Computed example of a mutant assay.
Amino acid sequence: MSGNNGASAGSVALAFLSGILLGAATAFLLAPQSGRESREGLLRAARRAGDDFKDFSEKATHTWEDVVEKSRDFMSEASSVVQDAVDAGKEAMRPLRNSSRDEPNTPL
């Protein structure tokens, strides 16, 4: 069974937008204002919500780019470490291979 407890970016965005819409609808229905004032307030709230969502989206994009860049750096470093280990292993085995070539084969 998969233990995925994290929320996906899509579900977070959907929850965010749902909250905005629910809050705006509640404010619209319960506000003691004229229709024109309510519409203007709703437009202001929608613009603010759009700006907030744009900021959230930009931050998420920058965070994702940072994660990708750090992952690439890590993989490059790990690859270098593995290559160094392989080279060291080859170098350590070289004398053993050379000595086994110099010894005559003896039958058992």
Rank of each mutant, 00 (worst) to 15 (best):
M1R: 13
M1Q: 04
M1A: 08
S2G: 02
G3I: 00
N4Y: 13
N5P: 00
V12G: 00
V12A: 05
A13R: 03
L14N: 02
A15Q: 14
A15R: 15
F16P: 00
L17M: 13
G19V: 04
I20A: 05
L21N: 05
L21Q: 05
L21A: 07
L22V: 12
G23Q: 06
G23W: 06
A24G: 03
A25W: 11
T26E: 01
T26I: 14
F28T: 01
L29S: 03
L30H: 02
A31F: 02
Q33E: 05
Q33W: 13
S34K: 07
S34E: 07
G35P: 00
R36V: 11
R36Q: 08
E37D: 09
E37H: 04
S38F: 01
R39W: 09
R39F: 12
E40Q: 13
R44F: 07
A45Y: 01
A45H: 01
A46F: 09
A46Q: 04
R47M: 06
G50W: 04
G50Q: 03
G50N: 04
D52I: 06
D52V: 04
F53C: 02
D55G: 02
K59N: 06
A60M: 12
H62K: 15
T63I: 09
E65M: 12
D66Y: 07
V67D: 05
E69Y: 01
E69F: 01
K70Q: 15
S71L: 15
S71H: 09
R72C: 01
M75G: 00
M75D: 05
S76A: 13
E77R: 15
A78S: 10
A78T: 06
S79N: 13
S79W: 02
S79H: 06
S80M: 13
S80A: 13
S80H: 13
Q83P: 00
A85N: 10
A85F: 12
V86C: 02
D87R: 15
D87I: 15
D87A: 14
G89Q: 05
E91A: 14
E91C: 02
A92C: 02
A92W: 04
M93T: 03
R94H: 05
R94L: 13
L96Y: 05
L96H: 07
L96M: 06
S99K: 15
S100V: 07
P104N: 08
P104A: 12
P104D: 10
T106N: 03
T106Y: 08
P107N: 10
L108R: 14
